[in-house]
Amino acid sequence: MSALLQVRGLSRHYGRRIGCEDVSFELHPGELLCIVGESGSGKSTLLNTVAAQLAPSAGSVRYRQRDGEWLELGQLSEADRRRLAREEWGFVTQNPRDGLRLNVSAGANVAERLMALGVRHYGQLRSIARGWLERVEIDPARIDDAPTGFSGGMQQRLQIARTLVTQPRLVFMDEPTAGLDVSVQARILDLLRRLVNELGLAAVMVTHDLAVARLLAARTMVMQHGRVVETGLTDQILDDPQHPYTQLLVSSVLTT
């Protein structure tokens, strides 16, 4: 099967400091890849660079569109980049307040991407929004409530609904469960796993939590100081870490 995303020798520097350095990987349709590492290891920089939100200092990212054509992201115009982000991709931020539009209702948040794609039928938008709220386990009766009145976990689920409503092929997630308490985390992870399977989406997820990687991802990349130090099947990496840093990471997980 042909890949969806091809990353080759990708680097991003901030002046003389390294954000990420010489990262290469491929992502296949329906695959969920986890990037793990400690704070400051370059995970988010890598994610943002791959998602074309930051310009790479070196290297290339190629994406295969719905019609099978390969796009070189570095050469895309702003218009094409936005079209891609709107029609084929989704981005879930760590802080739902960054990804949501807080001054409009939950329903409008879910429907916004559909309206951007040109859906102009209010009743239709409404029923799709209601359906998605249900799917992410938010009471559809709260469709007209402002997201500011939602709990952190609900806001994050709303952001997931808002992102997935257009059925993207590729979703980028930046620590979607960080900052939530453990039981809420578990629900969101469960939800994500179900939706990823149902919709067959490919996803790149950044996390510092190895348990998240274990639960969701088939493949995991471990980063340290901006470089990928180890990559492979998640179970293999977590059960038999080769690199000293990975070993340290795995052994630091608290067990109860």
């Binding site: 702003e78 218009a79 936005r82 539009r101 409009v104 209702s105 329903g107 409008a108 429907a111 916004e112 991407r113 309206m115 951007a116 794609l117 040109g118 102009r120 209010y122 938008l125 409404r126 469709i143 007209d144």
Partner: peptide, 22 residues
């Protein structure tokens, strides 16, 4: 300005949607 340049006006309907919802 970018939204105008790209003719990307879905956002305006968010406001109209909110009107109807409320």
């Amino acid at each position: 300005r970018t939204l105008h340049a790209l003719g990307d006006y879905g956002l305006m309907h968010v406001k109209l949607y909110e009107d109807i919802a409320q």
